[in-house]
Amino acid sequence: MSGLRILVPIKRVIDYTPQVKPRVNRAQTAVETANVKHSMNPFDELSIEEAVRLRERKATPVEEIVAISAGPAKAQDILRTAMAMGADRSIHVQVDEKDALEPLGVAKLLKKVVDEQKSNLVILGKQSIDDDAGQTGQMLAGLLNWPQATQASKVEVEGEKVTVTREVDGGVETLRTKLPMVITTDLRLNEPRYASLPNIMKAKKKPLEKKTLKDYGLDAAPRLKTVKVTDPPQRQGGVKVEDVDGMIGKLKELGAL
């Protein structure tokens, strides 16, 4: 074996911050995404970071780190981010927001890309924070018929041997397998780096290949139908009382005393 050829699939999602409150659209079919801040799925940042660290550790040579994202044109932003963090090049598969892929669609696409890129290790987030399906990694492993280690909290590669530690209820579980394989990342795997300005500039010159689903001969017609999307029930506002007596009265009124 010559070295690792790592594929890192990443997704552009609504930014995870308390300042961005996702809203359900009027038709109750989806969450409003227009004019909402987006960024890279945090689990995918861990994937990129881990790939870069594998290269830095030099235990097993890393030939190439390729980032891929399927989504609207803006998905190129997060690909540039990935390249600034250390990916060598990236592939953008143009998919309009209205035709967003389901996990199976993504897994099928990734299988094609793995074949095309001759990847022998796929590191992907255990889930995306928008759909929370948590299926893509497993489906991809199934389609490729590769071993998989999900929710990794530690990854060690020695030659062809890969040891993955996972945090499970009541302890840790250590898996050992051989390349090629699929790994999904969990929060405690690493702490993603900041991309520095010089690396941001270098990333602009790294190759970004534009593709379509057609190039991969894929039909990604949805199989699932979203019936309805609704907000969680609104929290009831509190009541202000003037003093202690008022509070006791209120508590009695509510039957709490």
Binding site: D15, Y16, T17, S39, M40, P42, E45, L46, A73, K74, Q76, D77, I78, R80, T81, A82, M83, A84, M85, I129, L187, E191, P192, R193, Y194, A195, I200, A203, K204
Partner: peptide, 15 residues
């Protein structure tokens, strides 16, 4: 920060 200047950075806070 859209396409012209991509602003990648660690987003550990989400994590």
């Amino acid at each position: 920060v859209p396409s012209r200047f991509v602003a990648p950075m660690r987003r550990a806070s989400a994590v």
